[in-house]
Simulated assay, not measured.
Amino acid sequence: MLGELNEQQIEGLLKQQVIGRLGCHNKGTVYVVPLHYFYKDSVIYCHSAAGKKIEMMRRNPQVCFQVDDIRSVFRWKSVIAWGLFEEITDPDEKQQAMQGITHRLMPLANNPSNHASHGIAENENDIGTTIDPVVFKVVLSRKTGRFEE
């Protein structure tokens, strides 16, 4: 049976997952990439090294975001959401976003102390030496969800 997810199911899937796909568009180019995130109050929080997706979102902040939970070919849930990219520059908000991402991801990592790019490292001096992340949020304005079971 195919169906639509209700608002509560959409919210649940967005909160449950930690990897989503971000779609951005600029000057005739569409770019879709997977990334880690955490979700709270209709906002997707992420971080990334500077590069193509950041450049594209700075030029065109309209993006879409997709997550799914695939149990089998005939048993899955998927959410697609649309919103606006906003780079986080306020130091306090940036720290809170990074803490949220770290707290969401690290319980799922085999060896969290080796992930300096997520703000955790055995040696505090290692933090920030691999990348200086761009921390951003996607403020969602529209969400839809589908399922098959």
Rank of each mutant, 00 (worst) to 15 (best):
I127Y: 06
V139H: 09
K40I: 03
G23R: 04
V79S: 04
F65L: 14
F136I: 05
N114Y: 02
N114K: 10
Q17C: 04
S113V: 13
S117G: 06
V18R: 03
E55F: 07
L35G: 04
N123E: 10
K27C: 09
V30Y: 10
L140M: 14
N60D: 10
D126M: 09
V30H: 07
N110K: 15
K15T: 13
V73Q: 10
G83E: 10
N6C: 07
G128P: 05
G83T: 11
L140K: 09
F74P: 00
Y45S: 03
E149S: 13
I54L: 06
I131H: 08
K53Y: 05
I80H: 04
R142L: 08
S72T: 11
A81L: 09
C46S: 06
N60V: 07
L14I: 07
F85N: 03
G12E: 12
R75A: 06
H103N: 14
L13M: 12
V135D: 00
V18P: 00
E7C: 06
P107R: 05
H103E: 15
L105H: 02
Y45C: 01
T144H: 07
Y39P: 05
E87L: 09
S113M: 12
R58D: 11
G3P: 02
V33Q: 01
Q8N: 14
I70C: 10
Y45M: 00
V79H: 02
V18C: 04
D68W: 11
Q96T: 08
H115R: 12
K143A: 14
S113G: 06
K52H: 11
E11S: 12
Q66A: 12
E11Q: 14
K52R: 13
K143I: 10
H103S: 15
P112W: 10
K53C: 03
K53F: 03
T130M: 10
G128I: 07
H118T: 02
S113L: 15
A121L: 10
K53L: 04
Q96W: 09
F74G: 08
I44V: 15
K143M: 15
C24Y: 02
V73Y: 09
P112Q: 12
K94H: 08
A116Y: 07
D92Q: 14
Y31G: 02
V139T: 14
Q99N: 15
P133V: 02
M1H: 11
N125Q: 15
N26E: 11
I88N: 09
I70G: 05
G100D: 11
H115P: 01
D132I: 13
V79C: 03
Q95I: 09
D90C: 14
R59P: 00
Q62E: 13
K94R: 15
P107C: 05
M98F: 02
V32F: 04
G23Q: 09
G28E: 06
F147D: 03
K94N: 09
I120Y: 00
I10T: 08
A109R: 09
R21N: 05
R59M: 11
E86V: 09
Q66D: 07
E93F: 02
I101N: 00
S78N: 03
P112S: 13
D90Y: 12
C64K: 01
Y39K: 11
A81C: 12
P107N: 03
V73C: 05
G23T: 12
V134W: 04
